[in-house]
Nucleic acid binder design. Structure first.
Lengths: 329, 329
DNA sequence: TTTTAGCACTGTTTTTGCTTAAGTGCTAAA
DNA sequence: TTTAGCACTTAAGCAAAAACAGTGCTAAAA
């Protein structure tokens, strides 16, 4: 069991450590706790025993453990109002009617990175449930055409397709018309199926070079969904005093360059989720806070990566603000 | 004046330092120079006097100065053949007919970053001289349309345009048709002019909400050229022993995040240019090697950033290979 | 029973001096 | 002109010493 006073003590230690990044000693808390350092030491001892605090060495002040942060996040920290300055900076973006939602997300996370001095990540992925609204195929020259697909949510993808020599331009036209006719209204992720089972058999009958053409289109359409990754403020997390070591910094930067690791940040869960230290797959020394968004057929994850010693309350408030504003669109 | 023997000595020192990143002492060179360390010391002394070598402290071995690297690059290093392994890795990309040139550049620079362990940068910019081949405007819903522009070189740009409420859809259609008619064949950079001086006066006559519509299109088309930046292998340059300091690493990473600094990498000059240390605007401790490319109406810069202690010969050879292959397309 | 003052104790950090290693410049002889 | 030899300089590593921060424990006070 954790007493009221112990909770108060933990709160003070976590918040002091978040602010100053130095182990917190018993003396420093006498004033706030209104008791002597000896009493505080006794309580600290208990909190350490149950695993909420740690010492960096035998005679050091205390530092919250992962479990300590977890307890703080789950039981102590209180949701806050968005602070005035943060609000001001975000509002101009969020309220800008002429921005596409996607741009709002990107821009907001950029700003949040600046405001908090943490790194933010936006993982976007065009929903495969989007329906094809229109397919355009525009000839460029003898060997090249551009295929453009617009979805019902306004998402645009294009691919340059190389047509190997000697394919009859009339046959291209015919194929394109057919594709146009058959593909509109299907979902992005079934495009390649439609190509294979509906388009292919038909063009096989009247197009000489049907194999060549089919392959060109198939490979162009097969991975038409575009996954985007944007990382803002890599430098921010590196400025944190816990990453004051060249090798550690290299390690973090390497992780941001590893596509697999970055894509792993993707969140499945709804709501705003907090992964402290070893709870996340990115790095044991950081906390990842993330949430899924889904809007206009575009879905993805917005995430914030900082030290475990993170300004949890503020960050949650900020992410909540963004999430609410996106969802209400 | 620099004698033949002094040049040979400089060459050995530069190449030894490139390889080992440690100041080079006189003893280590006795074998290659076929003379005693005392003689070498005397020659080193001279090379230092004329500013080609430096000491890190009074009793240390010698390190090339910026001027020394410059002399090496200008007068000593010899162009080489592409080494077998490098060739092999690049060829599969460069010879892939079905890749767009743009993708070849991106992919090649990615590979060069891996091969050399330096950081590479690709600054792409759609040429403003490209001609508009086709404009498509596709309605999404009451307030949103997507405008797509394809150029004669196969470059595609799109923008989501927000149409403020109550604009008549028939009027949108009329405006779009007009834009379509007037804009095809003009160059990307004169699109906004055409909009202002040809489209605007006409729609003003028969479109009620012409101000609103004009503004929407104008702002959408006004910066239609898309500048792209791709940085590969940030971590590589950080791994170099000269950047073994947390603050230095942070400094470099911050520079890669500063759009202005990165855009400054853009090269104006033709040919492959080498900027050693203070010769470049990026960072005094690095060398930037870059070259302009222009192909298919797409133009930009490919650059390679590494320590001053860079494998100049190899890097030049690699960039040359890419450049030649792009130019011959 | 809880709180507190006091003190011994323990790691960290910083300073200091000392030693070793690497490599130079200079001089005098080859 | 080249070389061997030597005195000299700095960096780097290491250990001991001193200063510091903060703890745990005990015995007395509340």
């Amino acid at each position: 069991m954790v007493s009221k006073r112990q909770e108060e003590l933990l709160k003070l230690i976590v918040e002091d450590y978040i602010k100053n990044a130095r182990p917190v000693g018993s003396k420093a808390l006498c004033d706030s706790m209104k008791c002597s350092s000896a009493t505080i030491r006794a309580e600290m001892n208990y909190l350490e025993e149950i695993g909420l605090l740690e010492k960096t060495h035998i005679s050091s002040g205390r530092v919250p453990s992962e479990k300590g942060y977890r307890y703080y996040v789950d039981n102590i920290m209180a949701p806050r109002e968005l602070n005035g300055e943060d609000m001001l900076k975000l509002q101009t973006i969020v309220d800008n009617k002429s921005l596409v939602v996607n741009d709002i997300i990107l821009k907001s996370m950029e700003i949040i990175s600046e405001l908090t001095h943490y790194t933010t990540v936006v993982l976007g992925k065009q929903s495969s449930h989007n329906l094809v609204q229109k397919v355009e195929v525009i000839p460029i020259d003898k060997n090249n055409i551009v295929a453009i697909v617009v979805t019902d949510k306004g998402h645009v993808e294009h691919k340059n397709i190389y047509i190997p020599g000697d394919v009859d331009s009339v046959e291209i036209k015919q194929t394109v018309d057919l594709i146009n006719k058959l593909i509109v209204g299907t979902s992005i992720d079934s495009v390649s199926e439609v190509l294979e089972y509906q388009v292919k058999p038909i063009i096989a009958q009247y197009v000489k070079q049907h194999e060549v053409l089919y392959n060109a289109f198939y490979s162009a359409f097969s991975d038409f969904t575009n996954e985007s990754v944007k990382v803002n403020g890599r430098k921010n997390i590196l400025m944190q005093p816990e990453f004051n070591d060249a090798d550690k910094i290299r390690d973090i930067i390497s992780k941001f360059e590893d596509k697999e690791i970055v894509n792993n940040i993707k969140e499945e869960d709804n709501g705003i989720n907090i992964y402290i230290g070893s709870e996340n797959d990115f790095d044991d020394d950081v906390t990842v806070i993330k949430t899924k968004y889904k809007v206009n057929g575009e879905e993805g994850t917005i995430a914030l990566i900082g030290p475990k010693r993170m300004e949890y309350e503020r960050v949650i408030t900020l992410l909540n603000y963004i999430k609410e504003n996106i969802d209400s669109r």
